[in-house]
């Protein structure tokens, strides 16, 4: 019996999502499993956005904090640095300073930061809240309005606050990240709720919730694979938005990226360990279906881009 390649083609596909104004980027759009160029169309490479914050990243571990020394006290400088020095294709601005347990910055202050960052860079901007359900529904509508015309991504809408955030994203013509917690059914339900209120499914990005390598990566990985199979094989339209891997935030808080070699000699150099941890988390999730990634360390981003070159 001779060899015959078992190739698979699907009736469904992933929506391509186009973001940005002065400089546009597109991600998603494939009609096959991740990077399966041998049996389908993979028109766009995953988009990696550099994460910056509205406040100085005091909580970030040394490895990733020091690379932004001198620019990270000012979000505008930071954004420009990412675009001009590091060649960032997109910027993810996290308004972590608005969190009530932190600096509790007001919506007005957030609007100021967002507007100045948008004016400073050409690359598309992803605007993220502080992940505080109530505060996000206060801050994100205001910044979405201020960012009108920039074709941004706004995030994240969750079950508890999706209505106000989605309405603002819709009114101001932005794309929207819909986040649920590591469950394909919850993810589907949220996307359905959003489309029922009139939000176009083609403008959604599904965030099934990220986890770091060693800290539940296998859950995110499998939920992503299942969502992608639902999109392709079952042609389930609400599961066809591209997926987000919010990698940096989940990686750069675990023990493996912080414990010094002097304390745990069997783990080796903390700097290389941290960078690889972020890159490997990102590439694993890309293999499961993530098309939009938010990352922090320039060396990790560079390696992931190189890996994509080898895959595509």
């Amino acid at each position: 019996m001779g060899y015959e390649a078992v190739k698979e083609s699907f009736s469904g596909g992933v929506f391509p999502v186009r973001i940005g104004k002065e400089k546009e980027e597109v991600f998603g759009g494939e009609n096959t499993l991740p990077f399966h160029k041998f049996e389908g169309e993979v028109p766009n490479r995953p988009l990696i956005a550099y994460e910056i914050q509205d406040v100085a990243p005091e909580e970030w571990p040394e490895t990733v904090r020091t690379v932004y020394e001198g620019v990270s006290e000012d979000p505008v400088k930071w954004a420009r640095h990412c675009e001009e020095e590091l060649g960032a294709r997109a910027i993810a601005l996290r308004l972590v300073g608005t969190h009530p347990d932190g600096k509790d910055l007001t919506a007005e202050e957030a609007v100021k930061t967002v507007t100045s960052v948008l004016e400073a860079v050409k690359a598309p901007v992803i605007i993220l809240g502080s992940n505080h359900v109530e505060k996000d529904s206060e801050v994100l509508p205001r910044v979405a309005e201020a960012a009108k015309g920039y074709n941004c991504v706004i995030g994240k809408a969750q079950e508890a606050n999706y209505k106000t955030i989605a309405a603002a994203a819709m009114a101001n013509d932005h794309k929207l990240i819909a986040m649920s917690e590591l469950d394909i059914n919850l993810s589907k339900q949220l996307n359905i709720l959003l489309t029922q209120m009139g939000f176009a499914k083609e403008k959604l990005i599904t965030d099934p919730m990220c986890s770091a390598l060693g800290y539940g990566l296998e859950y995110t990985y499998s939920v992503m694979e299942r969502i992608r199979l639902a999109a392709l094989a079952q042609n389930d339209e609400v599961m066809q938005p591209p997926m987000l891997g919010d990698v940096g935030m989940y990686v750069w808080k675990i023990k493996e990226v912080q414990a010094p070699e002097e304390v745990l000699p069997e783990w080796g150099s903390v700097e290389e360990r941290g960078i690889l941890w972020e890159a490997l988390t990102a590439t694993s999730l890309m293999l499961a279906g993530a098309e939009l990634l938010i990352m922090r360390h320039p060396k990790a981003v560079e390696m992931v881009e190189k890996f994509v070159d080898e895959l595509i």
């Binding site: 060693g214 493996e256 360990r273």
Partner: peptide
């Protein structure tokens, strides 16, 4: 390298966990 081993071992453990 030790740091590389740790990352790769962890990935293998994650992927081969019984779901």
């Amino acid at each position: 390298e030790k740091w590389k081993n740790l990352a790769l071992f962890t990935l293998r453990q994650n992927i081969y966990t019984d779901p």
